[in-house]
């Protein structure tokens, strides 16, 4: 943030290609000076702050399939142009992927969610991204269109640092896809911000669990942590512990300790690292307990 943030957006050209291939080629040809535009809620802020200087914003919102939201037997596909409010409003999502709707609801404000997209939230790769945890624990896979066509990549491993991901020039994430969820699964997102709602997270904690006979404990849990490491993080040791040990208050407590030990938060303007570590412990316990209550309801 500079003292002289631009009063308005700096000069750039808005580009709306006719096809995905055209868009990928344009982005590849203008690597470093062009960026795909979904909702723009992060892009515009960064450009106004003088942090990004792109010459071209390439609108991918209405390209082939990016405006689609489909929930059927094959799973859930959310196009890059689908706003979070659309995700929340979709009854099938609330019914079958409530965790995702819950995570979307926690993002900023209603009027910002009219623009904000899940795919944008993922590509932005903020350690604090509110929907990233849900996408991770639900095993989301990204549909990516590059200059050599479509490919699919798992979300895990996609984040390489704050604001950094594995996309290459010309790549456009057109959608995120989720397979149908395991039967009787349940999840919880707990966000601790400064305000009761709407703030960025000091810590964001996502827990997801489901019965699984292949696990010694009979259950598998996934735990994702936001704002406590350079990238959104899965708490693998805690997850493994819960696969081995019966789900109860003691094991949730132990898993919470493992989760806390796994994160590497920093001191920043929102919180100290010390508080974040303590809150990962507290919120993991709480999220696991709440998830367990839903699982056994």
């Amino acid at each position: 943030m500079t003292i002289n943030a631009h009063p308005e957006l700096p000069d750039f050209d808005y580009v709306r290609p006719a096809t995905l291939m055209e868009a990928s080629q344009f982005l590849a040809q203008h690597a470093g000076e062009a960026r795909p535009l979904c909702g723009g809620t992060d892009i515009f802020v960064r450009m106004r702050d003088g942090l990004w200087h792109d010459r071209y914003l390439v609108d991918v919102k209405k390209l082939d399939g990016t405006a689609n939201l489909a929930c059927d037997a094959a799973g859930l596909t959310i196009g890059a142009g689908v706003s979070m409010n659309r995700v929340i409003a979709e009854a099938a999502v609330r019914q079958n992927y409530p965790l995702l709707a819950e995570a979307c609801c926690s993002v900023a404000s209603h009027q910002l969610r009219t623009r904000a997209t899940i795919v944008g939230n993922l590509c932005n790769a903020s350690p604090a991204g509110d929907t990233i945890g849900a996408c991770l624990v639900l095993g989301g896979r990204l549909r990516v269109h590059g200059t050599d066509g479509f490919r699919e990549i798992p979300l895990e491993g996609f984040f390489t640092g704050p604001g950094k991901n594995t996309l290459r020039p010309g790549d456009i994430v057109t959608a995120i896809h989720f397979a149908p969820l395991p039967a009787h699964s349940a999840g919880t997102y707990i966000k601790l911000g400064r305000n009761t709602w709407s703030d960025l997270s000091i810590v964001g904690l996502t827990a997801f669990g489901y019965p699984d006979e292949t696990a010694a404990s009979g259950y598998r849990f996934k735990i994702a942590m936001a704002s406590v490491a350079p990238t959104p993080l899965l708490a693998h040791k805690a997850q493994d512990f819960l696969a081995e040990n019966p789900p109860n208050l003691q094991s949730f407590d132990q898993a919470a300790r493992l989760a806390s030990a796994a994160c590497s938060p920093i001191d920043d303007v929102r919180s100290s690292a010390r508080y974040r570590k303590l809150m990962v412990y507290q919120l993991t316990k709480k999220a696991l307990q709440q998830t367990w209550e839903k699982l056994t309801r």
């Binding site: 943030m1 003292i3 400064r194 305000n195 709602w197 709407s198 703030d199 303007v269 929102r270």
Partner: peptide
Amino acid sequence: LFESLQLKEGVLQNPSFVDYRIATTSD
């Protein structure tokens, strides 16, 4: 509950609504 201009050696660390929080309808 929320407000403080965080000045570090004279440099403001939270010069926006993102990090200078005020009460909202939720509070």
